[in-house]
Design a protein around this nucleic acid. Structure first.
Lengths: 204, 204
DNA sequence: GTCGATTAGAGACGCACCGTCTCTAAAGGA
DNA sequence: TCCTTTAGAGACGGTGCGTCTCTAATCGAC
């Protein structure tokens, strides 16, 4: 639906942008599982060869469409002055993205692109570490010097949830991850026993 | 490689068992991504129709092959008298299974079988709860009455790790999940600050 | 033991999509 | 203006899907 580019023949970056838009529309129309190179080419009004000249396969094509649509998450990290709100904000960003792109994209990509992992998934560790360091500087937590395993917990739990559920993630899940797991783990000053019984996590 | 069944025509349960064995061999030979119905049929020396008569698609077929190979995990839950060893034991069981079936099976199944989740994945919550209740009864932890979100943490983190990594999970990852995340969360009596700096988790 | 219902084994079939290849002509730079 | 690049279009062989058809082996009923 990129409106123009009606009659003239597109090239280079402009063509590429149209193609990635088409990927996005195709994703919305049929989902990742039934997205085909031919479908994308048709929607972008171009030939398959044009696609294959740029990306070796479906997974790489879709992977390229994501930042084209979203930009990097690093530019959108919240800074509210409170750790809980920061982490929750980041998780909400992730959930929102997944809602936009359809629930089967992440697991689909993962299944097809073994080499996808490090760049795409490693970023969240840096983001979370940044939030922790800010919180430590504010005195909100004792130290940001936590094991990588702990730092990656919120993103890992959320992504696991995303991969399992075909539907979009409800907000209370994010709240639970933060309040029942992450904050207790990082030892935030004012929530030592926030997790006594089976609360539904919607409080606060 | 089920040895016999050389000349006579198989039927019913015996045939089914041979097919599921063939699935397993095919999985080992080519991995989930390149496993085909035709390949399985050929290896089991039968026709595709025999497969389709029993399972509607590849995902269901493979899903059926897993318990045929492994049995249910519920029958193998360890009971060592110590929470840490119990949880670690269960995680090792999961990791071992994944090592056996190939790293791409879980994510592959997940991508193709939306309806797979609840039965297959929900079991770990009950297992972990059982371990916690035993520990509580022993007085090792204050209470087993923890939020579901916390109880599912170890299995969730491990499965996330399994889905990301193409290779098999190293044992120190399991140790980290238990020592740096799970035990601190359930508030085990004797490990209040086991998580000061970036320990490698191999201790003990 | 014979008969009838079931279903295994084998393969052909049309279909969808893959990834490659070829060709013409439009675009853009020198 | 010419020349290089490459878009747009489609054909191609190949693979695997899921369906369908046919023969004959097997099993249960009697």
């Amino acid at each position: 639906m990129t409106a123009d580019s009606g009659s003239t023949r597109r090239r280079g970056a402009a063509l590429e942008a149209d193609i990635l838009d088409a990927v996005w529309e195709e994703l919305a129309a049929v989902g990742y599982a039934r997205l085909t190179m031919e479908g994308v080419a048709a929607r972008a009004r171009t030939g398959k060869q044009v696609l294959y000249r740029r990306w070796p396969n479906r997974a790489q094509l879709v992977k390229a469409a994501l930042p084209h649509r979203f930009g990097t998450i690093v530019d959108q990290v919240p800074d509210t002055g409170e750790l809980r709100a920061d982490v929750l904000g980041v998780l909400r960003l992730m959930a929102e993205r997944q809602r936009d792109m359809g629930s089967d994209v992440v697991v689909g990509l993962l299944g097809e692109a073994p080499e996808l992992d490090p760049t795409t998934f490693g970023i969240m560790q840096d983001v979370t570490r940044t939030l922790l360091e800010r919180a430590a500087k504010r005195g909100e937590i004792a130290t940001a010097d936590l094991p990588a395993r702990v730092i990656t917990v919120p993103a890992a739990l959320l992504r696991y949830e995303m991969m399992l559920s075909r539907t979009s993630i409800e907000d209370h899940v994010l709240v639970e991850i933060v309040d029942e797991v992450f904050l207790p783990l990082v030892g935030r000053a004012d929530t030592p026993e926030a997790r006594t019984s089976g609360g539904d996590g919607t409080g606060l």
